[in-house]
Design a protein around this nucleic acid. Structure first.
Lengths: 194, 194
DNA sequence: TATAGTTATTGAACTAGTTCAATGTTTTTA
DNA sequence: TAAAAACATTGAACTAGTTCAATAACTATA
């Protein structure tokens, strides 16, 4: 079942034969994470790239003022890692924590390299996936500049209703880059307009 | 000379033999762009991926309120494209305009695909480059949330002094996501503190 | 070299969003 | 099931950054 999700994930980007998927999948190992457990802590080296098969994670940093800043949330069918730390095996700027009991498929650094070597097609797969991630991040950056907090909130709720449902105001605020009190105020405003 | 830059650019990410570079380079063709000319206009399909060998470009969108928003500036040794539009051959959300007389090496969609097929190593090259771009965009997003306008301005000036020197306050403002009047005020504040 | 166009500076009035503090609500744990 | 902890709501005071409008300074071009 977790491997079915991984296969479906590939299918979105590229064609793999069953044999190819067999090999690909064999590089990943499952891990169970209980609620609030850390997959990665800021300062540690990120040893894995992870594919979420169940649950939910937040990927975040804490800035100098102690403010938490969520880079993204990862639910089923999303990838989680600190790419920078993973590719350079350098201390992570990001922390990754589960928000509920979760399951991931992990691949470690050496195996990832081995996989690239053994299956050049995986280069293409990750090239495509990284490109898509880049595009959505570019759009988010622009939204952050062009939209007001209200608009960003509504956009998020509309775009990720299933994720939103799992989150507290604090977490949504940390993602949108606004205070949680202001999220409350936006909610009230929105509710009164209906 | 422009091709030397292209070679040096590759060398930063991956090892290519002279023969490999020969093939790689042969897929690109040079283009001269005069000041204020457009390489791409919002709404058109982006037919190229470009490597800047001279000059400077701004990659931007205009939002509903008519506000200009700069995604990035590209000078010598940078790539310019609207990846989303290029990969899907869909109408671009971005415009790309030269800020001065410039030169680029371009590759078009079909040739890029041909290149991937003919030289699988290019998949790796672009996978790595895209990853690096993604990392820097992630960092920028976090900076936008954690830093004040003053801090972002100073960070930009310090990180890209050579680019900054080519830009007007209007353009810096459009990149930082603040008003150009406020850039003026930050400048004054900074100057008075020295 | 005068003129038009673009860019920069400044101040005053404003507003979107923050901070703080108090209160209420829900969730977790013993 | 009571107590503790975490989360949400609200209002009042504040501030970072905007908008508008006027003026000054560049820089292109005829």
């Amino acid at each position: 079942m977790p491997y079915t999700l991984l296969k479906e994930n590939i299918d979105k980007h590229i064609q793999f034969s069953d044999a190819e998927f067999e090999t690909y999948g064999s590089f990943f190992y499952p891990k169970t994470i209980s609620k609030k457990e850390y997959l990665l802590r800021q300062g540690d080296v990120c040893r894995f790239e992870g594919f979420v098969t169940k649950g939910c994670f937040r990927v975040y940093t804490i800035d100098n003022d102690g403010h938490e800043n969520v880079l993204y949330f990862a639910v089923e069918d999303w990838w989680v890692t600190d790419i920078d730390s993973f590719t350079n095996q350098a201390p992570a700027l990001l922390s990754i924590q589960s928000l509920e009991d979760s399951e991931v498929l992990l691949i470690n650094k050496k195996d990832k390299e081995q996989l690239y070597q053994q299956m050049p097609k995986v280069e293409k797969l990750f090239r495509i996936m990284t490109q898509k991630t880049l595009v959505s991040l570019q759009r988010r950056l622009i939204r952050n500049h062009c939209y007001t907090a209200d608009e960003r909130y509504l956009h998020f709720m509309k775009t990720y209703p299933k994720i939103a449902q799992k989150l507290t105001n604090l977490q949504i605020a940390a993602y949108l880059g606004i205070s949680h009190e202001f999220v409350s105020k936006i909610r009230r405003k929105v509710a009164s307009k209906k």
